Structures are given as C-alpha cells and as structure tokens.
Deep mutational scan, measured.
Amino acid sequence: TFELKGKVGKVVKIAEDHYLVEVEGDKWIAYSDEKLSLGDRVMVVDVDGLKLKAKRIP
C-alpha cells in the first residue's frame, strides 16, 4: 500500500466519518483534513495501515 502515496484518485462515496476513494481501480477508505465532495480528485498523501489520507487537488 505504500506505493499508493502520491497517486491520484476520486471520491466515490461519503460516509459519516470517512470517504471511499477509488485509486487505480481499487476502492480504499480514506480520511482528509479538509471537507471533500463526491467526485473530487484527490492525491494520496499518506497511508495508515489500510486507510489513506487524501488531499483535494484541482
């Protein structure tokens, strides 16, 4: 999973306390310091076990 750092994905679902992000065809649980919206493009900035930390990108 460490190779996911720096990869770009898309928010495909918003849950109460996390997001579901699709990166290279796989879906991952993600969290972010900022509020994300459905369809936002994100970059993986860190990997915490099986969770990704994501940041919105333009």
Rank of each mutant, 00 (worst) to 15 (best):
I14F: 08
M43W: 03
L50M: 14
S32I: 08
K27L: 10
W28Y: 14
H18L: 14
L36A: 02
A54M: 15
K53P: 01
G9D: 00
K10C: 13
L4S: 04
V45R: 01
I57Y: 10
L4P: 15
I57W: 10
A30W: 01
V11W: 01
L4V: 14
E16C: 11
I57V: 11
D46T: 03
G39V: 03
L4A: 05
G9C: 07
W28T: 02
F2G: 15
L52G: 01
M43S: 04
E3T: 02
E16N: 13
E16Y: 13
E22R: 07
S32A: 14
V23N: 02
L52W: 02
L50A: 10
L50F: 14
K5F: 15
V42Q: 00
K27M: 08
A30F: 02
L20I: 13
T1K: 15
L50W: 15
G39P: 01
K7H: 04
K55R: 07
D46M: 03
V42R: 00
G6C: 07
G9E: 00
K7S: 06
A54N: 01
G9P: 00
K7I: 02
W28N: 02
T1P: 15
M43E: 15
E16Q: 11
G6P: 01
L52S: 01
I29Y: 14
K5D: 15
D46H: 04
L20Y: 11
S32T: 05
P58D: 12
V23A: 03
V44D: 00
K27F: 10
V11I: 06
Y31V: 12
E3Q: 04
D48W: 10
P58I: 09
V11D: 00
E24T: 05
T1L: 14
V42S: 01
T1D: 15
A15F: 13
H18P: 00
P58F: 12
A30V: 04
D26K: 13
D40Q: 04
K5E: 15
K51R: 12
V11P: 00
G49I: 04
Y19E: 01
E34K: 04
I14Y: 08
L50E: 08
I29F: 14
Y31C: 12
K55A: 14
V44I: 15
E22Y: 08
D26R: 14
S37A: 12
I14G: 04
P58Y: 13
E16D: 13
E24L: 10
V23H: 02
G9N: 00
W28K: 01
A15Y: 13
V45I: 11
K35W: 10
A15D: 12
E24Q: 06
E24Y: 05
K51S: 09
D48H: 07
M43V: 14
H18V: 11
D17M: 10
G6R: 01
G6A: 02
K27T: 10
K7W: 03
K5C: 15
G49N: 08
D46G: 06
K53H: 06
S37N: 11
V23R: 01
V23F: 05
V8S: 10
K7L: 05
V44W: 03
R56P: 06
V23C: 05
M43L: 10
G25N: 08
L52K: 01
V12T: 09
L36T: 01
D46V: 03
K51W: 07
L4R: 02
I57F: 09
V11C: 12
D33I: 10
S32K: 05
G49K: 05
V47Q: 13
V11R: 00
L4I: 14
D33P: 07
R41T: 13
G49T: 04
L4E: 15
E22L: 12
K35F: 10
A15W: 14
V21M: 11
K53M: 05
M43Y: 05
K13R: 12
G9S: 02
A30Q: 01
D26P: 05
A30K: 00
K10W: 13
A15E: 11
T1Q: 15
G25H: 08
H18T: 09
F2M: 15
D48I: 15
V44E: 00
E3A: 03
L38F: 12
E24W: 04
K53E: 03
E3W: 12
L36F: 05
L38A: 08
